[in-house]
Design a protein around this nucleic acid. Structure first.
Lengths: 194, 194
DNA sequence: CTATTATCATAACAGTTGTTATGCTAACTG
DNA sequence: CAGTTAGCATAACAACTGTTATGATAATAG
């Protein structure tokens, strides 16, 4: 196994501990135990704990980002945006784990300004992608011309974020159909009235 | 000073440490130092750490809940709902601190099922209040009759939650006017088309 | 084959954690 | 006034934290 693959294995073990135990109880020793190894492995592949957990978060972010880009390929117009947004939601039970990591990191960032900045970068990246998609739709005259695409991108992110945390806390309140309905209705309200 | 008042003072100190340092770095000693006392005070008024931080969270929740109930008094119809929702948002800079505590607790709950249940109780309470308000509006024929009030309550909570965390991470992306605009537009989409 | 490096285990380090026990002083109670 | 409790400080406890150093073994390179 290559160095990078082994590194990912360590990060995956950290990911599992975060999901199961929470971020603040994710210690080096807990990760090593989850990996079935010793802490020597962990320290060998990561300079310190922060580098490891940030790498784990980055992987969660990149994976969902790839999914968003993959699922909207082959689609056009409103469908494209819709699929992109829906992919980010925890529609299936298995999606909830990544959302737990995301929410755990958000809470963990309170009082740690450099971690807040890490999130800012990722939110800015998301905002950029969604803004571009909205701008394209605006050019194609599929959504209203008077919309502020940046504001609308932030609104979509907020909606997805709110639903995501809602699912984590109260899963029974957000079925997949209800999540899809809410997102679709929001997007439909952006359409040109013609 | 009464026992209850002193207890609140301790909880307020804990609140300040949570906002400044984050929930996982809020130790008994840090709280005592913030209070200008020793840990003896903290252990005297709270059985253990969990009782203290849950009390601090409960106060944050109750305070915003009181604000919501207070501000919507004297108003009627859609205005009432609108003010109730807007009150929960971090429109002013000072509101951000309570949201930091809320977000910190959400993340802290990952991997701690009993803390998730604590949040469930509070979200259920919010849902109940907003559902009731929506049902009243439906009776008055001010919002569409085909709306599922529970689903719409969850949608409003998700929107507020998403905006709240958005403000915490990217404050420059959510001015007070933009927050109000997004909430008002969402509520307007529920109105009867007549 | 030899030398070097990668991979990992073990252990020690100093610091922090929540909790508990002990004791002192002031206030209140009978 | 004597006795009791509330309020708080101090300290000790064992457990746990991230980090670092030291070796050992295995793979690799020259």
């Amino acid at each position: 196994m290559s160095y990078d693959d082994r590194r990912i294995e360590v990060a995956n073990a950290a990911w599992r501990v975060i999901v199961r135990e929470g971020l603040d109880r994710t210690s080096m020793r807990a990760i090593a135990q989850e990996l079935g190894s010793s802490t020597g492995v962990v320290t060998h592949y990561f300079r310190d704990k922060e580098e490891l957990i940030l790498f784990a978060l980055e992987r969660v972010f990149e994976n969902t980002l790839e999914d968003m880009k993959a699922y909207d390929q082959g689609r056009q117009g409103i469908d494209r945006l819709e699929q992109m947004i829906l992919t980010a939601l925890p529609l299936e039970v298995t999606d909830k784990a990544d959302w737990k990591v995301w929410v755990a990191f958000l809470g963990y960032s309170i009082g740690r300004e450099h971690l807040v900045q890490e999130h800012q970068k990722r939110y800015a990246f998301l905002r950029q992608i969604i803004s571009q998609a909205l701008a394209d739709l605006q050019t194609a005259n599929l959504i209203r011309a008077d919309l502020d695409v940046t504001l609308e991108a932030n609104a979509l992110i907020a909606l997805v974020d709110g639903i995501g945390t809602g699912v984590i806390i109260c899963p029974e309140q957000f079925s997949a159909e209800q999540q899809q309905y809410l997102v679709r209705r929001h997007i439909n309200s952006l359409l040109t009235s013609s």
